[in-house]
Simulated assay, not measured.
Amino acid sequence: MNPLLLDIPLQMNTERLILRAPLQSGDEEIVSEAIKDSFNELKVWLSLFQEIPTLEETAILLKNAHINFLKRESFRFLIFKNGGGKDFIGTASLHRIDWDIRKCEIGYWINTKFSGNGYMTEAVKELVDFGFNHLALKRMEIRCESRNVKSRFIPEKLGFTHEGTLRNDDLSADGSRLTDTCIYSKIN
């Protein structure tokens, strides 16, 4: 089946969270504020956030995410606490989707003020269930820098297999040094 014909929900709910596609007016303000609040932590791990993006840049980022969602190239979800949906937790996505092999990579970042509550683990678990049960994916990966202990905790807690660590595989987020990349996978 052509992926464009897949019925993809624009919102998923867990016990404590709402995961929804980034398409509502005002999303850029919410996301922009969270990036500012979390900037010191985000810039250590994500090359995308070496500078605080303008509101316009954030809006473009979200519109591109929505376009990729519609094209079935990636599925980025904004994460909110259940019960009103005002507390923005972060984002989680299925990206680098290969529909022939039926595999993808999972990416995520969290608003620092919500870190340490298990929210991102809960959101990623929902995406794993969605990927295997709704999209019939056969392999899902999480890749992260070996020193990013908080990020590594999520696949380890969710039972992913640590397939290995690629040494001197990438540049640090700021481009100043080589880093090692841990690869975790789960297969269906």
Rank of each mutant, 00 (worst) to 15 (best):
R96Y: 08
N40H: 13
G175S: 11
T121G: 14
N148V: 10
L127V: 01
R20F: 11
T161C: 12
Y119C: 09
I142D: 00
W99R: 13
K138R: 15
P155W: 02
K125A: 14
I60K: 15
L166F: 14
G175Q: 14
N111A: 07
D87F: 09
R76M: 10
R16A: 06
I60T: 13
F132Y: 07
H134S: 14
A21N: 07
T179P: 09
E51H: 13
M140L: 15
T179M: 10
F130M: 03
Y119K: 11
E156I: 05
S185H: 02
R177Q: 13
R143F: 05
L94W: 09
S176V: 04
I18K: 02
S146N: 10
K63A: 08
H95F: 15
D7R: 08
I106M: 07
L78C: 14
K186Y: 06
G85E: 14
I142W: 00
R139G: 02
R147C: 09
S32Y: 01
I97Q: 06
E145R: 11
C104N: 05
K157L: 06
L23W: 11
S146F: 07
Q11F: 06
I8Y: 07
Q11N: 05
S47F: 03
G84C: 08
I35N: 04
G118T: 01
P9R: 12
A65C: 09
S115P: 11
N68P: 04
K63C: 03
